[in-house]
Amino acid sequence: MSQPITALPANTQPATSPNGGMPVLRLQRVTRRYGARVALLDASVELRPGLVGLLGPNGAGKTTFLHLAAGLTEPSSGHISWLDDRPRRHAKLDNRIAFVPDGDDLPRRDTALDFVAMLLQSAGLSRAQALARGASTLERLGLQAKLHEPLQGLSRGQRQRVKLAQAFALPADLILLDEPLNALDPIWRLEVAALMREAVQSGACVVLSSHILEEVEALADWLVLLFRGRVVAAGTRKQIQELLSHRATAVRIQCDDPRRLGQALLGVAPVTLLRVEGQELSVQAENLAVLQRSLAQAVLSSGVRVQSVRTAGDDLVGLFQALSQEVR
């Protein structure tokens, strides 16, 4: 197995999200095991205010990461600290961490308002304050007609919004969202995205876990990629792509004469594979940056008309596939 691609050298230094402000969460060489199964291995990440995308396929360790980040489970080894290096359950952390768990179950007999108000009361609000704030937050999420309905009668999307309401009802510094956009229709996805941005503007660090890469790509300032329990990359999308640019990569070019362009490219670039399919030329090279420079040269010298150039790994899907292959 090759070394994982990371924005940090071999997990010795935590990858730090770029925004200003004090660190909200710091994981140092954190490992979490469940019996013989390793759910998270040697993860070092430092998060500051901003919107962080936590990406990975099913079973990558996202939920374990979020549970550790919420302080709901203890690491088997390593160290976690919150809000400027405070340990778990420090009084200053009271109500500063919010969490939306995965899954669509909720206590069936509670009403939407009861459920949110209960959590707010246990945070320290009076019953009246909890009911008022719970109701207004549920209304913000479009559930004004469902306040007094038992949760078992709500649709999956509505239950998901109830879970989001309890997380956003009180200002927090660290908001951990496990697959928060699941079961939401496009309108509510946009609303929830707006809510996340509002929280970030207020200085919060919102960690959004998802396996829907496009959504995270559109929302997150910073990405943490998990695969088989390892943090395989962390950084901005651009930083991660730069890491990949030194890896074998492929470019697909739509043009009017792919054969001529291929011949021109052979003369100027260290190409490892060329393939022509209809009007498309696929090129594989050892180094993406060199290939891109050579491609411009070849287009000019050959005089072909180029319609489009697509780089594998240019979007998060490609990026993730490449990273996954690295770890395999």
Binding site: H67, A70, G71, L72, R89, A91, D94, N95, I97, A98, F99, P101, D102, G103, D105, L106, P107, R108, M118, L119, S122, A123, G124, K163, Q166
Partner: peptide, 22 residues
């Protein structure tokens, strides 16, 4: 179990002093 089975016990346990008080 009502909250644990619904996967929301953690939400209550995040509250101040909850691991003992709950």
């Amino acid at each position: 179990r009502v909250d644990a089975d619904a996967g929301v016990l953690g939400l209550f346990l995040l509250r101040p002093r909850a691991p003992t008080a709950l």
